[in-house]
Write a protein that binds this DNA or RNA. Sequence first.
DNA 1: CGCCAGGTTGATTTCGCTCAAGCAATGTGG
DNA 2: CCACATTGCTTGAGCGAAATCAACCTGGCG
Lengths: 242, 242
Amino acid sequence: MVKDKPPEHPSKIPCQKARYRTETEWGALTRDEINLFDRDVVCKTYCSGETIFVEGDACKGLYFVEHGLVAVRKTEINGQSTIVRLAYQGDTLGYRPLLAKENHRATAEVINDTHICFINAKTMRHFLRSNPKLGMRFLEHTALALGQAEERMFQIAALSVRTRIIHLVVLLRDHYGTITSDGTLFVDLPMSQRDMADMIGARPESVSRALRDIQDDGLIHLSGHTVRVDRVDRLVEELHHH
Amino acid sequence: MVKDKPPEHPSKIPCQKARYRTETEWGALTRDEINLFDRDVVCKTYCSGETIFVEGDACKGLYFVEHGLVAVRKTEINGQSTIVRLAYQGDTLGYRPLLAKENHRATAEVINDTHICFINAKTMRHFLRSNPKLGMRFLEHTALALGQAEERMFQIAALSVRTRIIHLVVLLRDHYGTITSDGTLFVDLPMSQRDMADMIGARPESVSRALRDIQDDGLIHLSGHTVRVDRVDRLVEELHHH
DNA sequence: CGCCAGGTTGATTTCGCTCAAGCAATGTGG
DNA sequence: CCACATTGCTTGAGCGAAATCAACCTGGCG
């Protein structure tokens, strides 16, 4: 049972000028459009466990992740659920249903405290009509996401839990990994093992066991939520072999 | 080992005016653009078993399926492979890598004899720049495909082989199903059980057994590649329950 | 006719899920 | 400040679904 903390009041403050936006699809906006964006944007901070939107909701607009971590989750009738995507700093949420003209097909659930800029669908559609470049940026982004989804589909179908876990650790390295001067890699897992299980389509017990197996083989060393990898090449080599 | 039959010579004939195009993303083209399309298009008939492009190839352009059936397949180092998507009449192949500016991440393999209209990447990029509507159509299409990919990911992770087979039969009904006057449904499976296995992430033996189980339960009746479904509702009901 | 790919069937094994118990860390109320 | 819930992780035992291995059809085709 998730207890929703009282949400903070939405703010009209334009998110410290939202500098991250310029490095994303939103970099296509003209100066005038940026002003319009800043006029209409509504910003809000979500705490861990809160939901941004839920499966079945109409798509009211887009959510730009200023910083934080959000899981996009699908839930079945029987209660099983899968995380279909993660949204990091700089990612935009809700673009798929908006572009496909559908309702939300998944729930966005905050994993780490997250600052979100919301832009309503009407303004967004205006941008798409007036600025073809923005559409092309989103087109490119959606095509990349489709490739990733197909990649993951393949993995879940063909690879063992152990291998999928290694894939996940390598994936999380991009955002949560640091490398020390002696070449040791540390990955600070930003989520619970339950969430990791939902990411790779497995049960939490299986994740726990797989992590211990990999540790027993000397490929990683776990302490709390931090994974130490002494020989990254050996870990990656297992991916290419299996 | 696939033995590639000698490909027929590409033809400049504009595919019997390609009437199917108007009902797809390509419907956004203006009259002038259609003329340009017809000038640059190269058409060709592929036989079952031939490949249109392979994983790792640079994306040279788009392939419009005039008619036929194509499987988009990913293959692992160890030889395992999965069909990530099917392309039917009216579908366009190769748009994902073109839009994402990547190489092909999958192989397109002809299942049933297929007539393809090829349009080169340069012309396509010209269309995208000159006609924002076309980009929006592809954006919508890609967003829908992303939703489907996420749906399938979920299914493979959570459902039994039996249930996934039923899903597949119901999916194929759209293109290969006919319904008789007494309400009986016939689905003419367009592919081998091996391919069906690759579609749902299972082994051929498991597909064979699952099909027989479903038949033993009286839900379907198999004869050759034709599935007879007397009570469609009972079949669909199993999907909603499981 | 014989070959061979595709399909069936059986025996065995393996992987991961389920169920269940225990444990450490954190939180909470008296 | 201590008893107690709660939550997340670990570990074990047993089971079941599907993979694997292997033999054997069957029909189409050179």
